[in-house]
Write a protein that binds this DNA or RNA. Structure first.
Lengths: 187, 187
DNA sequence: GTATAATTTCACCAACTACTGAAAAGACTG
DNA sequence: CAGTCTTTTCAGTAGTTGGTGAAATTATAC
Protein backbone atom coordinates (compact mmCIF):
# COMPACT_ATOMS: atom_id res chain seq x y z
CA UNK A 1 0.00 0.00 0.00
CA UNK A 2 1.40 3.31 -1.08
CA UNK A 3 -0.58 6.50 -1.02
CA UNK A 4 -0.53 9.28 -3.60
CA UNK A 5 0.36 12.84 -2.70
CA UNK A 6 -3.30 13.74 -3.08
CA UNK A 7 -4.33 11.13 -0.53
CA UNK A 8 -1.45 12.01 1.76
CA UNK A 9 -2.63 15.60 2.08
CA UNK A 10 -6.01 14.49 3.31
CA UNK A 11 -4.61 11.83 5.63
CA UNK A 12 -2.08 14.15 7.21
CA UNK A 13 -4.69 16.83 7.75
CA UNK A 14 -6.89 14.39 9.64
CA UNK A 15 -3.93 13.36 11.71
CA UNK A 16 -3.24 16.93 12.69
CA UNK A 17 -6.85 17.77 13.39
CA UNK A 18 -7.12 14.68 15.53
CA UNK A 19 -5.93 16.46 18.64
CA UNK A 20 -8.63 19.12 18.26
CA UNK A 21 -11.23 16.44 17.78
CA UNK A 22 -10.18 14.46 20.83
CA UNK A 23 -8.71 11.54 18.96
CA UNK A 24 -5.06 10.82 18.41
CA UNK A 25 -3.10 11.31 15.26
CA UNK A 26 -2.95 7.64 14.36
CA UNK A 27 -6.70 7.21 14.59
CA UNK A 28 -7.33 10.31 12.56
CA UNK A 29 -4.97 9.15 9.86
CA UNK A 30 -6.34 5.64 9.72
CA UNK A 31 -9.87 6.85 9.44
CA UNK A 32 -8.98 9.24 6.66
CA UNK A 33 -7.20 6.44 4.84
CA UNK A 34 -10.13 4.07 5.15
CA UNK A 35 -12.60 6.73 4.20
CA UNK A 36 -11.00 7.43 0.85
CA UNK A 37 -9.84 3.92 0.13
CA UNK A 38 -11.81 2.31 -2.69
CA UNK A 39 -11.31 -1.12 -1.13
CA UNK A 40 -11.03 -2.65 2.31
CA UNK A 41 -7.58 -2.63 3.88
CA UNK A 42 -5.94 -5.02 6.29
CA UNK A 43 -3.85 -4.01 9.27
CA UNK A 44 -0.58 -4.64 7.49
CA UNK A 45 -1.54 -2.38 4.60
CA UNK A 46 -2.57 0.37 6.98
CA UNK A 47 0.66 0.01 8.91
CA UNK A 48 2.68 0.31 5.75
CA UNK A 49 0.68 3.15 4.24
CA UNK A 50 1.04 5.30 7.33
CA UNK A 51 4.49 4.24 8.47
CA UNK A 52 3.39 3.31 11.96
CA UNK A 53 3.93 0.20 14.05
CA UNK A 54 1.77 -2.87 13.70
CA UNK A 55 0.77 -2.70 17.35
CA UNK A 56 -0.28 0.89 17.02
CA UNK A 57 -2.58 -0.09 14.19
CA UNK A 58 -4.05 -2.82 16.31
CA UNK A 59 -4.86 -0.48 19.17
CA UNK A 60 -6.27 2.13 16.86
CA UNK A 61 -8.57 -0.38 15.18
CA UNK A 62 -9.83 -1.43 18.56
CA UNK A 63 -10.65 2.14 19.38
CA UNK A 64 -12.33 2.77 16.05
CA UNK A 65 -14.39 -0.35 16.54
CA UNK A 66 -15.47 0.88 19.94
CA UNK A 67 -16.67 4.03 18.20
CA UNK A 68 -18.46 1.81 15.71
CA UNK A 69 -16.82 3.70 12.91
CA UNK A 70 -15.35 0.77 11.03
CA UNK A 71 -16.55 -2.54 9.68
CA UNK A 72 -14.51 -5.70 9.55
CA UNK A 73 -14.85 -8.08 6.66
CA UNK A 74 -13.01 -11.06 5.24
CA UNK A 75 -11.89 -12.03 1.79
CA UNK A 76 -12.02 -15.59 0.50
CA UNK A 77 -8.91 -17.60 1.36
CA UNK A 78 -7.46 -14.86 3.48
CA UNK A 79 -7.81 -14.88 7.18
CA UNK A 80 -6.71 -11.35 7.84
CA UNK A 81 -9.24 -8.74 8.94
CA UNK A 82 -10.12 -6.19 6.31
CA UNK A 83 -11.45 -2.84 7.44
CA UNK A 84 -13.72 -0.32 5.80
CA UNK A 85 -15.41 2.91 6.76
CA UNK A 86 -19.10 2.99 5.87
CA UNK A 87 -19.24 4.59 2.45
CA UNK A 88 -22.19 6.74 3.28
CA UNK A 89 -21.10 9.98 4.97
CA UNK A 90 -24.53 10.44 6.42
CA UNK A 91 -24.19 7.16 8.26
CA UNK A 92 -20.78 8.16 9.56
CA UNK A 93 -22.22 11.43 10.71
CA UNK A 94 -25.02 9.73 12.59
CA UNK A 95 -22.61 7.37 14.28
CA UNK A 96 -20.38 10.24 15.32
CA UNK A 97 -23.28 12.19 16.73
CA UNK A 98 -24.60 9.19 18.62
CA UNK A 99 -21.25 8.26 20.10
CA UNK A 100 -20.27 11.75 21.09
CA UNK A 101 -23.62 12.19 22.68
CA UNK A 102 -23.19 9.00 24.65
CA UNK A 103 -19.71 9.84 25.84
CA UNK A 104 -19.73 13.59 26.18
CA UNK A 105 -23.28 14.59 26.96
CA UNK A 106 -25.18 11.72 28.52
CA UNK A 107 -23.01 11.53 31.67
CA UNK A 108 -23.63 15.21 32.30
CA UNK A 109 -27.34 14.97 31.60
CA UNK A 110 -27.60 12.16 34.07
CA UNK A 111 -25.64 14.03 36.73
CA UNK A 112 -27.95 17.00 36.25
CA UNK A 113 -31.05 14.87 36.54
CA UNK A 114 -29.69 13.49 39.78
CA UNK A 115 -28.97 16.95 41.17
CA UNK A 116 -32.50 18.03 40.32
CA UNK A 117 -34.37 15.18 41.96
CA UNK A 118 -34.53 17.13 45.19
CA UNK A 119 -33.44 20.65 44.32
CA UNK A 120 -32.48 22.94 47.19
CA UNK A 121 -34.90 25.78 47.64
CA UNK A 122 -32.95 28.46 49.37
CA UNK A 123 -29.89 30.59 48.96
CA UNK A 124 -27.13 30.13 46.43
CA UNK A 125 -27.86 26.45 46.06
CA UNK A 126 -31.36 27.29 44.88
CA UNK A 127 -29.89 29.62 42.31
CA UNK A 128 -27.45 26.91 41.22
CA UNK A 129 -30.31 24.44 40.86
CA UNK A 130 -32.14 26.86 38.58
CA UNK A 131 -29.10 27.10 36.37
CA UNK A 132 -28.70 23.34 36.29
CA UNK A 133 -32.31 23.01 35.26
CA UNK A 134 -31.81 25.47 32.42
CA UNK A 135 -28.80 23.55 31.24
CA UNK A 136 -30.61 20.24 31.37
CA UNK A 137 -33.55 21.64 29.48
CA UNK A 138 -31.31 22.81 26.66
CA UNK A 139 -29.46 19.51 26.56
CA UNK A 140 -32.68 17.58 26.32
CA UNK A 141 -34.01 19.84 23.65
CA UNK A 142 -30.90 19.48 21.50
CA UNK A 143 -30.35 15.77 22.00
CA UNK A 144 -34.02 15.07 21.37
CA UNK A 145 -33.79 16.96 18.15
CA UNK A 146 -30.65 15.11 17.15
CA UNK A 147 -32.47 11.84 17.75
CA UNK A 148 -35.24 12.95 15.46
CA UNK A 149 -32.87 13.96 12.71
CA UNK A 150 -30.88 10.75 13.05
CA UNK A 151 -34.06 8.83 12.44
CA UNK A 152 -34.64 10.58 9.16
CA UNK A 153 -33.18 9.34 5.93
CA UNK A 154 -30.60 11.53 4.33
CA UNK A 155 -32.96 13.01 1.81
CA UNK A 156 -35.42 14.23 4.41
CA UNK A 157 -32.73 15.54 6.71
CA UNK A 158 -31.10 17.39 3.86
CA UNK A 159 -34.38 18.93 2.91
CA UNK A 160 -34.96 20.01 6.48
CA UNK A 161 -31.55 21.55 6.91
CA UNK A 162 -31.60 23.33 3.60
CA UNK A 163 -34.83 24.88 4.65
CA UNK A 164 -32.89 26.48 7.46
CA UNK A 165 -34.44 29.63 8.80
CA UNK A 166 -37.18 29.28 6.25
CA UNK A 167 -38.91 26.92 8.62
CA UNK A 168 -40.20 29.96 10.40
CA UNK A 169 -42.45 30.73 7.53
CA UNK A 170 -43.89 27.27 7.93
CA UNK A 171 -44.25 27.78 11.63
CA UNK A 172 -46.16 30.94 10.92
CA UNK A 173 -44.09 33.21 13.12
CA UNK A 174 -41.74 35.84 11.75
CA UNK A 175 -39.18 36.44 14.46
CA UNK A 176 -35.80 36.45 12.73
CA UNK A 177 -33.15 38.19 14.68
CA UNK A 178 -30.71 39.17 11.99
CA UNK A 179 -32.76 39.65 8.83
CA UNK A 180 -31.78 37.70 5.71
CA UNK A 181 -28.64 35.53 5.38
CA UNK A 182 -27.20 32.53 3.64
CA UNK A 183 -30.53 30.75 3.99
CA UNK A 184 -32.10 31.91 0.79
CA UNK A 185 -30.48 29.98 -1.96
CA UNK A 186 -29.42 26.79 -0.39
CA UNK A 187 -32.59 25.01 -1.49
CA UNK B 1 -15.34 32.05 48.62
CA UNK B 2 -16.36 28.66 49.77
CA UNK B 3 -18.60 26.34 47.80
CA UNK B 4 -21.40 24.15 49.13
CA UNK B 5 -21.43 20.39 48.60
CA UNK B 6 -24.20 20.87 46.07
CA UNK B 7 -22.09 23.24 44.02
CA UNK B 8 -19.00 21.08 44.44
CA UNK B 9 -20.66 18.10 42.81
CA UNK B 10 -21.42 20.11 39.71
CA UNK B 11 -18.00 21.75 39.59
CA UNK B 12 -16.12 18.49 40.02
CA UNK B 13 -18.18 16.80 37.35
CA UNK B 14 -17.30 19.51 34.86
CA UNK B 15 -13.67 19.16 35.81
CA UNK B 16 -13.74 15.45 35.10
CA UNK B 17 -15.67 15.78 31.87
CA UNK B 18 -13.21 18.42 30.75
CA UNK B 19 -10.85 15.87 29.26
CA UNK B 20 -13.63 14.39 27.15
CA UNK B 21 -14.61 17.82 25.97
CA UNK B 22 -11.10 18.78 25.02
CA UNK B 23 -10.59 21.32 27.76
CA UNK B 24 -8.57 20.86 30.90
CA UNK B 25 -9.87 20.22 34.35
CA UNK B 26 -9.20 23.72 35.61
CA UNK B 27 -11.10 25.35 32.80
CA UNK B 28 -14.03 23.00 33.23
CA UNK B 29 -14.21 23.71 36.93
CA UNK B 30 -13.92 27.44 36.55
CA UNK B 31 -16.65 27.55 33.99
CA UNK B 32 -18.94 25.46 36.11
CA UNK B 33 -18.27 27.74 39.06
CA UNK B 34 -18.98 30.89 37.09
CA UNK B 35 -22.06 29.41 35.51
CA UNK B 36 -23.77 28.73 38.80
CA UNK B 37 -22.43 31.72 40.67
CA UNK B 38 -25.12 34.30 41.36
CA UNK B 39 -22.51 37.04 41.25
CA UNK B 40 -19.31 37.85 39.38
CA UNK B 41 -16.12 36.44 40.85
CA UNK B 42 -12.59 37.72 40.81
CA UNK B 43 -9.51 35.63 40.19
CA UNK B 44 -8.66 35.37 43.86
CA UNK B 45 -12.10 34.02 44.73
CA UNK B 46 -11.90 31.47 41.97
CA UNK B 47 -8.44 30.40 43.08
CA UNK B 48 -9.64 29.94 46.60
CA UNK B 49 -12.89 28.20 45.71
CA UNK B 50 -11.17 25.62 43.58
CA UNK B 51 -7.92 25.25 45.49
CA UNK B 52 -5.70 25.95 42.49
CA UNK B 53 -2.81 28.33 41.97
CA UNK B 54 -3.31 31.94 41.12
CA UNK B 55 -1.30 31.58 37.93
CA UNK B 56 -3.40 28.66 36.82
CA UNK B 57 -6.49 30.81 37.19
CA UNK B 58 -4.90 33.53 35.14
CA UNK B 59 -4.09 31.17 32.28
CA UNK B 60 -7.51 29.59 32.38
CA UNK B 61 -9.26 32.95 32.21
CA UNK B 62 -7.17 33.85 29.22
CA UNK B 63 -8.28 30.65 27.50
CA UNK B 64 -11.92 31.16 28.41
CA UNK B 65 -11.75 34.70 27.08
CA UNK B 66 -10.32 33.38 23.83
CA UNK B 67 -13.38 31.15 23.62
CA UNK B 68 -15.53 34.20 24.30
CA UNK B 69 -17.20 32.31 27.09
CA UNK B 70 -16.70 34.81 29.87
CA UNK B 71 -17.28 38.49 30.41
CA UNK B 72 -15.10 40.75 32.47
CA UNK B 73 -16.60 43.52 34.55
CA UNK B 74 -15.55 45.88 37.31
CA UNK B 75 -17.06 46.94 40.57
CA UNK B 76 -16.87 50.48 41.90
CA UNK B 77 -13.77 51.14 43.97
CA UNK B 78 -12.25 47.79 43.17
CA UNK B 79 -9.71 47.38 40.47
CA UNK B 80 -9.77 43.62 40.22
CA UNK B 81 -11.34 41.88 37.22
CA UNK B 82 -14.67 40.23 37.93
CA UNK B 83 -15.76 37.40 35.68
CA UNK B 84 -19.17 36.08 34.73
CA UNK B 85 -20.56 33.51 32.36
CA UNK B 86 -23.45 34.82 30.26
CA UNK B 87 -26.56 33.94 32.19
CA UNK B 88 -28.47 32.79 29.17
CA UNK B 89 -27.67 29.15 28.33
CA UNK B 90 -28.84 29.66 24.80
CA UNK B 91 -26.20 32.32 24.31
CA UNK B 92 -23.53 30.04 25.77
CA UNK B 93 -24.64 27.30 23.44
CA UNK B 94 -24.38 29.54 20.43
CA UNK B 95 -20.92 30.67 21.40
CA UNK B 96 -19.79 27.08 21.87
CA UNK B 97 -21.16 26.03 18.53
CA UNK B 98 -19.59 28.99 16.77
CA UNK B 99 -16.19 28.51 18.35
CA UNK B 100 -16.05 24.76 17.86
CA UNK B 101 -17.05 25.24 14.31
CA UNK B 102 -14.31 27.77 13.78
CA UNK B 103 -11.62 25.63 15.37
CA UNK B 104 -12.66 22.10 14.57
CA UNK B 105 -14.55 22.24 11.31
CA UNK B 106 -13.57 25.29 9.33
CA UNK B 107 -9.91 24.25 8.83
CA UNK B 108 -11.07 20.95 7.39
CA UNK B 109 -13.72 22.52 5.20
CA UNK B 110 -11.13 24.84 3.79
CA UNK B 111 -8.66 22.03 3.18
CA UNK B 112 -11.38 20.11 1.35
CA UNK B 113 -12.28 23.10 -0.78
CA UNK B 114 -8.65 23.42 -1.74
CA UNK B 115 -8.39 19.75 -2.67
CA UNK B 116 -11.47 20.08 -4.86
CA UNK B 117 -10.42 23.09 -6.87
CA UNK B 118 -8.82 20.82 -9.45
CA UNK B 119 -10.00 17.34 -8.60
CA UNK B 120 -8.10 14.44 -10.18
CA UNK B 121 -10.19 12.55 -12.70
CA UNK B 122 -8.65 9.14 -12.84
CA UNK B 123 -7.84 6.19 -10.66
CA UNK B 124 -7.90 6.07 -6.88
CA UNK B 125 -7.37 9.81 -6.60
CA UNK B 126 -10.59 10.36 -8.48
CA UNK B 127 -12.39 8.12 -6.04
CA UNK B 128 -10.82 9.98 -3.13
CA UNK B 129 -11.94 13.29 -4.60
CA UNK B 130 -15.50 12.03 -4.78
CA UNK B 131 -15.39 11.11 -1.10
CA UNK B 132 -13.93 14.48 -0.19
CA UNK B 133 -16.72 16.17 -2.10
CA UNK B 134 -19.32 14.16 -0.21
CA UNK B 135 -17.74 15.11 3.07
CA UNK B 136 -17.59 18.77 2.17
CA UNK B 137 -21.19 18.75 1.10
CA UNK B 138 -22.32 17.35 4.42
CA UNK B 139 -20.16 19.80 6.35
CA UNK B 140 -21.60 22.72 4.45
CA UNK B 141 -25.10 21.48 4.94
CA UNK B 142 -24.71 21.10 8.69
CA UNK B 143 -22.77 24.28 9.32
CA UNK B 144 -25.17 26.26 7.18
CA UNK B 145 -28.03 24.94 9.21
CA UNK B 146 -26.23 25.76 12.46
CA UNK B 147 -25.78 29.31 11.24
CA UNK B 148 -29.47 29.57 10.59
CA UNK B 149 -30.41 28.26 13.99
CA UNK B 150 -27.90 30.51 15.70
CA UNK B 151 -29.60 33.46 14.10
CA UNK B 152 -32.91 32.51 15.59
CA UNK B 153 -34.00 33.71 18.97
CA UNK B 154 -34.35 31.06 21.61
CA UNK B 155 -38.10 30.86 21.31
CA UNK B 156 -38.08 30.15 17.63
CA UNK B 157 -35.24 27.68 17.84
CA UNK B 158 -36.98 25.85 20.65
CA UNK B 159 -40.15 25.65 18.69
CA UNK B 160 -38.25 24.30 15.70
CA UNK B 161 -36.41 21.66 17.65
CA UNK B 162 -39.45 20.53 19.55
CA UNK B 163 -41.14 20.03 16.28
CA UNK B 164 -38.46 17.46 15.51
CA UNK B 165 -39.46 14.84 13.01
CA UNK B 166 -42.86 16.45 12.79
CA UNK B 167 -41.39 18.88 10.33
CA UNK B 168 -41.88 16.21 7.71
CA UNK B 169 -45.57 16.70 7.87
CA UNK B 170 -44.99 20.34 7.10
CA UNK B 171 -42.67 19.44 4.28
CA UNK B 172 -45.36 17.22 2.90
CA UNK B 173 -43.24 14.09 2.64
CA UNK B 174 -43.80 11.05 4.82
CA UNK B 175 -40.52 9.18 4.84
CA UNK B 176 -39.81 8.36 8.47
CA UNK B 177 -37.42 5.51 8.88
CA UNK B 178 -38.32 4.17 12.27
CA UNK B 179 -42.02 4.90 12.75
CA UNK B 180 -43.04 6.98 15.75
CA UNK B 181 -40.69 7.93 18.61
CA UNK B 182 -40.11 10.42 21.38
CA UNK B 183 -41.09 13.20 19.01
CA UNK B 184 -44.74 13.22 19.78
CA UNK B 185 -45.15 14.88 23.09
CA UNK B 186 -42.28 17.20 23.29
CA UNK B 187 -44.35 20.05 21.89
C1' DG C 1 -0.63 -32.58 18.47
C1' DT C 2 3.24 -28.83 16.08
C1' DA C 3 3.93 -25.11 12.93
C1' DT C 4 2.65 -20.83 11.04
C1' DA C 5 0.01 -16.58 10.44
C1' DA C 6 -2.47 -12.89 12.46
C1' DT C 7 -3.65 -10.17 16.23
C1' DT C 8 -3.43 -8.33 20.89
C1' DT C 9 -1.25 -7.08 25.11
C1' DC C 10 2.01 -4.73 27.72
C1' DA C 11 6.29 -2.65 29.75
C1' DC C 12 8.85 0.96 28.44
C1' DC C 13 10.27 5.40 26.63
C1' DA C 14 9.21 9.82 24.26
C1' DA C 15 6.35 13.64 23.65
C1' DC C 16 3.01 16.52 25.25
C1' DT C 17 -0.03 18.92 28.58
C1' DA C 18 -1.34 20.84 33.04
C1' DC C 19 -0.01 23.12 37.01
C1' DT C 20 3.01 25.52 40.27
C1' DG C 21 5.90 29.10 42.46
C1' DA C 22 8.75 32.82 41.59
C1' DA C 23 9.69 36.71 39.08
C1' DA C 24 8.25 40.33 35.97
C1' DA C 25 5.08 43.47 34.17
C1' DG C 26 1.23 46.48 34.42
C1' DA C 27 -2.03 49.60 36.72
C1' DC C 28 -3.37 52.68 39.96
C1' DT C 29 -2.58 55.78 44.34
C1' DG C 30 -0.89 59.38 46.92
C1' DC D 1 7.87 59.07 41.40
C1' DA D 2 7.87 55.15 45.06
C1' DG D 3 4.75 51.94 46.89
C1' DT D 4 1.08 48.73 46.52
C1' DC D 5 -2.14 45.80 44.37
C1' DT D 6 -3.21 42.90 40.49
C1' DT D 7 -2.31 40.23 36.61
C1' DT D 8 0.75 37.81 33.49
C1' DT D 9 4.67 35.21 32.11
C1' DC D 10 7.65 31.47 32.36
C1' DA D 11 11.01 27.76 33.74
C1' DG D 12 10.60 23.65 35.88
C1' DT D 13 8.17 19.52 37.10
C1' DA D 14 4.48 16.18 37.65
C1' DG D 15 1.21 13.74 35.30
C1' DT D 16 -0.85 12.00 31.16
C1' DT D 17 -1.02 10.21 26.56
C1' DG D 18 0.88 8.18 22.35
C1' DG D 19 3.66 4.93 20.10
C1' DT D 20 7.07 1.06 19.90
C1' DG D 21 9.07 -3.64 19.96
C1' DA D 22 8.93 -7.89 22.15
C1' DA D 23 6.26 -11.34 24.05
C1' DA D 24 1.90 -13.56 24.56
C1' DT D 25 -2.37 -15.03 22.71
C1' DT D 26 -5.56 -16.58 19.31
C1' DA D 27 -6.75 -18.84 15.06
C1' DT D 28 -5.98 -21.87 11.37
C1' DA D 29 -3.47 -25.48 8.79
C1' DC D 30 -1.28 -29.66 8.39
Amino acid sequence: MKTTAYQQAFILHFGEMGSRWGINRTIGQIYALLYISPRPLNAEQITEALGISRSNTSMAMKELSAWQLVRVQHLPDDRRDYFTAPDDVWEIFRTLVAERRRREIEPTASMLRGALVAPPEQGDDAHAATKLAEMLELIELVTGWLDDVSDMDQRTATQLMKLGGGVQKLLGAGRRKKAQKATKNRA
